[in-house]
Lab assay of single mutants.
Amino acid sequence: MGSVRTNRYSIVSSEEDGMKLATMAVANGFGNGKSKVHTRQQCRSRFVKKDGHCNVQFINVGEKGQRYLADIFTTCVDIRWRWMLVIFCLAFVLSWLFFGCVFWLIALLHGDLDTDYKDDDDKSKVSKACVSEVNSFTAAFLFSIETQTTIGYGFRCVTDECPIAVFMVVFQSIVGCIIDAFIIGAVMAKMAKPKKRNETLVFSHNAVIAMRDGKLCLMWRVGNLRKSHLVEAHVRAQLLKSRITSEGEYIPLDQIDINVGFDSGIDRIFLVSPITIVHEIDEDSPLYDLSKQDIDNADFEIVVILEGMVEATAMTTQCRSSYLANEILWGHRYEPVLFEEKHYYKVDYSRFHKTYEVPNTPLCSARDLAEKKYILSNANSFCYENEVALTSKEEEEDSENGVPESTSTDSPPGIDLHNQASVPLEPRPLRRESEIGSRR
Rank of each mutant, 00 (worst) to 15 (best):
G2I: 06
S3F: 02
S3A: 09
V4D: 14
R5E: 15
R5K: 11
R8I: 05
Y9F: 15
I11W: 11
V12C: 15
S14W: 03
S14I: 06
S14R: 07
E16S: 05
D17H: 08
D17R: 05
G18Y: 06
M19D: 06
K20D: 12
K20F: 05
K20P: 06
M24I: 12
V26N: 12
N28R: 08
N28T: 12
G31K: 09
G33M: 13
G33R: 07
K34A: 14
K34F: 07
K34Y: 05
K36S: 13
V37R: 12
V37Y: 06
H38G: 14
H38D: 12
T39F: 05
Q41I: 11
Q41M: 09
C43N: 13
S45T: 11
S45R: 13
R46M: 02
R46H: 03
F47N: 02
V48W: 06
V48E: 01
V48C: 11
K49C: 07
K49H: 04
K50H: 06
K50S: 06
H53M: 08
H53P: 11
H53S: 08
C54W: 06
C54P: 14
I59E: 14
N60S: 13
N60I: 03
N60A: 10
G62A: 15
E63A: 13
E63H: 14
K64H: 07
G65A: 15
Q66K: 15
R67V: 02
Y68E: 11
L69P: 10
L69N: 09
D71Y: 04
D71C: 08
I72S: 15
F73Y: 10
T75K: 14
C76T: 11
D78L: 12
D78M: 13
R80N: 15
W83G: 05
L85S: 03
L85G: 03
L85N: 03
L85A: 06
V86T: 15
F88L: 07
C89I: 14
L94V: 11
L94F: 04
S95F: 06
W96H: 02
F98Y: 01
F99R: 00
G100T: 01
V102N: 03
V102M: 12
V102C: 13
W104G: 04
L105V: 11
A107F: 00
D112M: 03
L113R: 02
T115S: 10
T115E: 12
Y117S: 00
K118M: 02
D121T: 10
D121A: 15
S124W: 15
S124K: 05
V126A: 05
S127Q: 09
K128I: 09
S132Y: 03
S132A: 05
E133N: 13
E133V: 02
N135I: 04
S136V: 00
T138L: 03
L142T: 02
F143I: 03
F143A: 03
S144L: 01
S144T: 03
S144H: 01
Q148N: 02
Q148E: 04
T149N: 04
G152K: 04
G154M: 02
G154D: 03
G154N: 03
R156K: 08
C157S: 10
C157Y: 13
T159V: 02
T159D: 05
P163S: 06
A165Q: 03
A165R: 02
F167R: 00
M168E: 00
M168L: 12
V170P: 02
V170S: 01
I174Q: 03
V175P: 01
V175R: 01
G176C: 02
G176W: 03
C177F: 15
C177E: 08
I178T: 04
I179F: 09
I179H: 11
F182C: 05
F182T: 04
I183N: 05
I183T: 13
A186D: 14
V187M: 04
A189E: 03
K190Y: 03
M191S: 04
A192P: 04
A192V: 14
K193P: 06
K193W: 10
K193D: 13
P194V: 03
R197W: 07
N198W: 05
E199M: 10
T200M: 06
L201T: 10
L201C: 12
V202H: 09
V208I: 07
V208F: 01
I209S: 01
I209H: 01
A210R: 05
A210F: 04
M211H: 14
M211W: 04
M211R: 02
D213H: 14
G214D: 04
K215D: 02
K215N: 04
C217G: 02
M219A: 04
M219L: 09
R221I: 00
R221V: 01
V222S: 01
G223L: 06
N224G: 08
L225Q: 11
L230G: 10
L230M: 06
E232C: 13
H234M: 10
R236L: 01
S242E: 12
S242G: 14
S242T: 13
R243Q: 13
I244D: 14
T245V: 12
G248E: 14
Y250T: 15
P252K: 15
D254W: 07
D254N: 10
Q255E: 08
I256D: 05
I256H: 05
I258C: 03
N259S: 11
V260K: 02
V260L: 06
G261E: 10
S264H: 09
S264L: 11
I266E: 14
D267I: 03
I269H: 11
I269N: 04
F270C: 09
F270Q: 12
F270S: 08
I275L: 11
I275C: 08
I275R: 06
I277L: 12
I277W: 02
V278W: 05
H279E: 01
H279V: 01
H279Q: 01
E280N: 13
E280Y: 13
E283N: 10
D284W: 11
D284K: 15
S285W: 01
P286L: 00
P286T: 00
P286I: 01
L287I: 04
D289Q: 12
L290M: 10
S291V: 00
S291E: 03
S291A: 10
D294Y: 01
I295T: 06
I295K: 03
D296Y: 07
N297T: 08
A298G: 08
D299P: 09
F300C: 02
F300I: 06
F300Q: 00
E301Q: 03
I302E: 01
I302L: 11
L306R: 01
E307F: 05
G308E: 06
M309I: 04
V310N: 12
V310E: 12
V310G: 15
A314Y: 08
A314H: 13
M315Y: 08
M315F: 06
T316H: 13
T317I: 05
C319W: 13
R320N: 06
S321Y: 15
S321E: 04
Y323K: 00
L324A: 14
L324G: 04
N326H: 09
N326D: 08
E327R: 00
L329C: 09
L329H: 05
W330I: 01
G331R: 00
R333I: 15
E335S: 11
P336R: 08
V337A: 11
F339E: 15
K342Y: 06
H343R: 12
Y345D: 01
Y345M: 09
K346M: 05
V347F: 11
V347Y: 09
V347L: 11
V347S: 10
D348W: 00
Y349H: 13
S350Y: 06
H353R: 01
K354M: 12
T355W: 01
Y356R: 15
Y356T: 15
E357S: 06
E357F: 05
V358R: 01
N360K: 03
S365A: 05
A366Y: 01
A366D: 01
A366N: 01
L369Y: 07
L369V: 15
A370H: 07
A370N: 07
A370T: 08
E371Q: 05
E371D: 04
E371M: 04
K372I: 03
K372W: 04
Y374Q: 15
Y374C: 14
L376C: 13
L376Y: 10
A379I: 04
N380E: 13
S381Y: 04
C383E: 15
Y384K: 05
E385V: 06
E385M: 06
V388D: 15
A389S: 05
A389L: 14
L390F: 13
L390G: 15
L390C: 15
L390V: 15
S392E: 13
K393C: 10
E395Y: 06
E396A: 10
E396Y: 09
E397W: 06
S399Y: 08
G402I: 12
E405C: 06
E405K: 06
S406P: 12
T407S: 10
D410K: 05
S411E: 11
S411L: 09
S411W: 05
G414M: 08
I415G: 14
I415R: 06
D416K: 03
L417E: 15
A421Y: 05
S422Q: 13
V423A: 15
V423G: 15
P424D: 15
L425W: 05
E426R: 07
R428W: 08
R428K: 13
R428V: 15
R431W: 05
R431Y: 08
I436L: 14
I436Y: 09
